[in-house]
Design a binder for these strands. Structure first.
Lengths: 160, 160
DNA sequence: CATAATTAATTAACATGGTTAACTATTTTC
DNA sequence: GAAAATAGTTAACCATGTTAATTAATTATG
């Protein structure tokens, strides 16, 4: 009934890869007592320049929950919940914006910064082994392919 | 604090891509009254040859819940729950295996087959537009990259 | 061959991550 | 100054996932 199809195969490959990474990511973050989602927030607050969101939204001021929601493509309500956990763990603090009392600026605590640094070391070692077989050109070509896909999805409304 | 790093960038790209696809996938499946997870099960039962699991596990007989769990990398209990929904929707039926009464063989109902076919049409149109800019060689190179990553993760226990 | 171990599936209780809708508080706009 | 917009929270909910315990059937073994 269903036939071989290269396009479908590309998609299943990406799904499989991201699933596997998520699983490995969970194994890493668990060692540090947080979840992958929580880690992503810490990386956003640490302004990891590799996160795609920052390419189009360079941030000067400390981030707000609204921006995290945008960057992670989830609802603000969900961010509130995730942040509550990180605040309870004393990894993140929330400060009222002086100029606009509706806004709350988020930043990492000292403990939060230290955790990110510790995890960064593990992440880089892991990545080094994972990508050992690829050249810089391989990797650039790969990300280029993805950028083109993302653009196709942005410009065109692919879902009717 | 955190620096630009091509490896990290590759990972964030894949995460972003699969997230975006998941969102678009959800938009498609919702039109047909199911979820993305449920769709995946239907495709597994329809033995979509593009699913990576079938490369290493060719199936002759109708699949069992245990195999779905393996293919999707989730617990058997979770599959039971997902299947219950599909059975309630009359898209899937469960039949006792004649040779081993512990086992239950799963197959698509006529309605299930029809749904898969209808969705297949939408999927292919969507993919055609999404990958319009790529050649066959581009796509093969891309999946090759992913296969190499997956192998690196299989052979080596990257998470200490 | 009877018992122990394994396998397949289910159930129950629970965690997490996500949603929308309604609400509060503050700032902007006109 | 009233209406609209913005930022955040809360509550109620759903989907997806887990583990642990249970049932039933099959396979292995002393």
């Amino acid at each position: 009934m269903l036939k071989k199809n290269l396009n479908a195969s590309v998609i299943f490959h990406v799904i499989k890869l991201s699933e596997t990474w998520k699983r490995n990511g969970d194994a890493i973050t668990q060692q540090f007592g947080i979840t992958t989602q929580q880690w992503l927030i810490l990386l956003l607050l640490a302004k990891d320049p590799n996160i795609l969101y920052f390419k189009e939204n360079p941030q000067e001021k400390p981030m707000m929950a609204k921006e995290l929601a945008e960057a992670m493509n989830v609802s603000r309500a969900n961010i509130t919940n995730l942040l509550n956990v990180l605040i309870r763990k004393k990894l993140v603090v929330q400060l009222e914006d002086i100029h606009d009392k509706r806004r709350k600026r988020l930043s990492l605590t000292e403990a939060g910064k230290k955790l990110v640094e510790k995890m960064e070391f593990v992440r880089q070692e892991y990545n080094k082994r994972l990508f050992a077989k690829f050249s810089k050109a391989d990797k650039l070509q790969f990300t280029q392919f993805i950028d083109t896909c993302l653009q196709a999805m942005r410009h065109d409304n692919l879902v009717k």
